[in-house]
Amino acid sequence: MSIAEQFEQKINQGDLPKPVPKFLVIAGRVALWIFLALVVSLGSLSAGVAAWFMTDPVALSGAAAGASWVDLFLQALPMFWVAIALVCGILAIIIFIKSARGYKYKRAYVVTACLVGFLALGAALASAGVSDKIDRMAYENIPQYNGLSKPRMLHLMKPDSGFIIGRIQAMDGSKLVIRDPGGGIWEVRLNQETNIPLHFKIQIGDCVRILGDASSTIHTTDARDVRPCPRGIRHMPPQPPPMIER
């Protein structure tokens, strides 16, 4: 008996299972494309935030202060966002290749298109101010995000070299009182020669980066430069004061 005859026999005997309904197939495809859209959106947003951090002029201006380009790159590079963008990118590529006609495209083209797409969308979102909002939202909603950023903040806190970073607690025309990432309080004296960018209007609560005279023992310094904190740090919530041992 041929296979066709056996097949027909199964039909006549009612032994043939029913095919998967069309609506389920369509629903599966729609779900896959929605998932792909979500992955691409999240990946683009993450790539946007990463690109936004990496093109921060405040962070890059630190090059003048003696840090190497690699150090600056790693400081400015938000590994958290790069990791999310990478995971989303890999997922998007796999989903696309596994889609009904995705195999027709060379993988190198798909990877390149994904990379270019993520960066282009990310750049557009960053220039629209979305990256800044996402960074702020991450601080407000992801407790671990604060922990991820703290090492970067501490990296910028080098009182021995005159680098201090922290949030303004109080201020008047001649001094700032700031709290550093470890919770320590610093008095930053301002004078005629202190350089503050024109566009930067200092306010209480702002995160600032001070370049001043080296100081390690007394929490006081004379500021030569006052700048806003680099992107990715400036939304970091205020640190609690250090514990006092009794």
Binding site: I3, F7, P17, P19, V20, K22, V25, R101
Partner: peptide, 22 residues
């Protein structure tokens, strides 16, 4: 080979709705 082919036809029939007409 006939066993494999029979299974293949059953697979195809079960998933015939997912056949892309293009």
């Amino acid at each position: 080979a006939e066993d494999v082919l029979q299974e293949a036809f059953m697979d195809a029939y079960r998933h015939v709705a997912s056949f892309d007409n293009n």
